[in-house]
Every structure is written in C-alpha cells, then in structure tokens.
Simulated assay, not measured.
Amino acid sequence: MAVRAEQRVDYLALDGEKSWVDFEVKVLWLVGVRGRFGSVHGMIKVDHFRSAATVEAQIDANVVSMRSKSHEEWVKSPEFFDAEHYPQILFVSDPIPLKRLQNGGEIEGTLTLRGISKPVRLNLIKPDCPGESADNCPVEAEGSIRRSDFGMSSRRGTLSDKVELSFSIATKPMNGSSAIP
C-alpha cells in the first residue's frame, strides 16, 4: 500500500553543533550584556497532512559563553538561570504553518525557564538562503521575554527586565524520519 505524501510525517533533529541561542540584557538600559547558549538539541516534526511543523528545543543552561568567565558563572547562578537546579531550558512551539517557515512571521509556543512555563511569541525571520537546500539553511527567530516572568527579579535597579533572544537552528535528518503517525 502506497503512502500518500499528505500523510507523511518527517522528523528533523536540531543540529547541536550548528544551532545556538543568543541573549542580551541591558545594564542601566544602555549597555548590552550578551551571552550565547551553545548546546541546543531537540526536533522538528513536519506533518505534511496538516501542512504544519512543531518544534521542541532543549537548551543546556550550563553551556553558555560570555565575555568573561565571571559573567558566565553569574548567569548560571541562582540569581539568573539557576543552572544547578534547572539545567534545561525548553521551548515547545504551537503548530507552525509550513508557509510561515518559508516566508517568516510570528510563531507562538511555551518557554520553560527555571521551572516556570510561560507563553512566548517569536518572530520567525524569512530565510535568506538562495539556492541552498533546507538542510543547509538555518531557521532564525527573535523575540523578547521579561526576566521577572521567570522568577529573575534581582538587580532591578541596574538590569533591564527585558531580555532579547535570537535563535539560529540548523537541522539534520533523524533515523526513521518518514512515518505514518
């Protein structure tokens, strides 16, 4: 029995070597302090029948790089990400129309940080990879969250509550990628 293309579900792994998440918070609302999470894993489920994809990204809060080691230790401390107690940051998207992955636009989902889950909205950036296959073209998104929404309320007099986020997600095929649900 032949499987119609519309019934096919593909699974793509997030390529941990090529994917990253940047964050920036303003000090005294002027100077940006930046960091990068360098360990991003998870998967994208592409449901061709529904013409939609869902993303699940796991970010290792212990793998962060910043301008100095003292900043890295500071953001991993209980004051911020509390990486010892909450080593994973999780983003799970709502279904994303496949056209939006090609054309850009808003995506919504749930971000779990420090054990607190909140809805977030990100702006998916239209891919700029002419002539490239989807395997070589990262999915990029950006948005912002409030530190206080996730229990990070220290240093309110010097640090902005708003944190800017930038995602660059590369994918690779998973074993057994095409299957009927």
Rank of each mutant, 00 (worst) to 15 (best):
E6W: 02
R8I: 02
V9E: 06
V9M: 00
V9S: 00
A13H: 12
L14T: 04
L14H: 12
G16F: 12
E17L: 01
S19F: 05
W20R: 07
V21D: 08
D22W: 04
F23W: 01
F23G: 11
E24W: 00
L30I: 05
V31N: 01
V31K: 03
V33T: 12
V33H: 11
V33P: 09
R34T: 05
R36S: 10
R36C: 07
F37E: 11
F37M: 00
F37H: 10
G38Y: 05
V40Y: 07
H41S: 15
H41I: 08
M43Y: 13
M43F: 08
I44D: 07
V46I: 14
H48L: 03
F49K: 13
R50F: 13
A52L: 04
E56Y: 11
A57M: 08
Q58N: 15
A61H: 06
A61F: 05
V63A: 14
V64N: 04
S65P: 06
R67E: 11
S68Y: 04
S68P: 01
K69E: 12
K69H: 03
S70V: 09
E72W: 08
E72C: 13
E73M: 13
V75C: 03
V75E: 07
K76T: 08
K76H: 10
K76Q: 14
S77I: 07
P78D: 05
P78T: 08
F80Q: 05
F80D: 02
F80H: 01
F81L: 02
F81A: 02
A83Q: 01
A83M: 04
H85V: 14
H85A: 15
P87Y: 09
I89T: 08
L90R: 05
S93Q: 07
S93W: 01
S93D: 02
D94Q: 01
D94A: 13
I96R: 04
P97C: 02
R100P: 00
Q102A: 04
G104C: 01
E108A: 15
E108G: 11
L111G: 07
T112I: 11
T112V: 13
L113V: 00
S117T: 15
K118Q: 13
V120E: 01
V120H: 02
N123I: 12
L124F: 10
I125R: 07
P127A: 00
P127N: 00
D128Y: 03
D128C: 09
G131K: 10
E132A: 15
E132L: 15
A134K: 06
D135P: 00
N136I: 05
N136M: 14
C137R: 00
A141S: 12
E142S: 04
E142W: 08
G143A: 04
S144I: 00
S144Q: 07
D149Q: 08
S154V: 08
R155M: 12
R156E: 14
S160G: 06
S168M: 10
I169P: 00
A170R: 06
K172P: 06
G176P: 01
S178P: 04
S178N: 13
I180M: 14
P181H: 14
